[in-house]
Design a protein around this nucleic acid. Structure first.
Length: 256
DNA sequence: ATGACGTGAGTATCACGA
């Protein structure tokens, strides 16, 4: 069972990359963020032709999340019952009858102290309530998404430059820590403690990828029951080197 | 200090991303 998360920065602009990647990597589940299209404009046919069922939750121009799965997708739920939000940032479902998966696109936050930053922290608090509910039972729960938070300085190419700034500020890191402390594991870091230069996003500007000037802001958080069967975890950073790439790379985990 | 680059909407230029 291989589950991945990928902020594609427009599913329609990235459709060929996504189809190529599904074809070559054959994940069982792919959690998408930043569809940048309305639900009905999702390219269902191309993804279904690639062998995947789709549950999408979109909106015009911005945001949008989806779950792609080879097996059955059941009990789809869009949004967060515990957080009033007009933006399409959360979708969850049961896949293969035994894994609860959630795709989340946490707000960017713009700048520390801004309205969008306040919204980001409120969103994370509301998301924690959802996770608290979903962790009531000892189930295989996998949350994948763009959290827009680099958990530690180790996750940042130049911590001094980023110190205290949005994506790296202490309140954001504490909010992410609170989510994880509900009973989850940041599986990529857990399997790669102390590894430097492990990033999932590189700025389009200033040749960020060529110099590996990145941040680790996309995460896979697993419940204890899901952690029991982890085999491998990684980042497919080569996708960032393609022509017209997303600025984020897929993060994946395989379970036995 | 600012902007770099990319996408969608709409057809010039802005909102937004991180």
């Amino acid at each position: 069972m291989k589950i991945a998360t990928w902020n594609v920065n427009s599913i329609r602009a990235r459709l060929s990359h996504v189809c190529d990647w599904l074809q070559s990597k054959q994940p069982d589940v792919l959690l998408l963020q930043e569809l940048k299209c309305q639900t009905e404009a999702f390219p269902y046919e191309a993804i279904e032709d690639a062998g995947y069922q789709v549950a999408a939750f979109g909106q015009k121009t911005y945001n949008g999340v989806a779950i792609l799965a080879k097996g059955g997708i059941e009990d789809v739920s869009c949004g967060n019952l515990y957080f009033e939000d007009s933006q399409a940032r959360v979708i969850e479902a049961i896949v293969d009858g035994q894994y609860r998966v959630i795709s989340v696109y946490v707000p960017n936050g713009e700048a520390v102290g801004s309205e969008k930053y306040t919204y980001k922290l409120a969103f994370m608090e509301g998301f924690a309530k959802l996770l608290e509910d979903r962790l009531r039972f000892d189930e295989k729960l996998i949350i994948g998404g763009d959290f827009n938070v680099a958990p530690m300085d180790l996750d940042v190419y130049n911590p001094q430059t980023w110190k205290g700034r949005v994506l790296c500020s202490t309140p954001e890191r504490l909010a992410l820590r609170s989510l994880i402390n509900l009973g989850l594991t940041d599986v990529l870091r857990a399997k790669n403690p102390q590894v430097e230069g492990l990033y999932t996003w590189w700025d389009y500007r200033s040749g960020g990828y060529a110099q590996n000037h990145g941040l680790r802001i996309d995460h896979l958080l697993l419940s204890a029951k899901a952690m029991e069967s982890v085999l491998e975890v990684g980042v497919d950073s080569q996708t960032r080197g393609l022509e017209r790439p997303s600025d984020h790379a897929p993060v994946w985990v395989s379970l036995g």
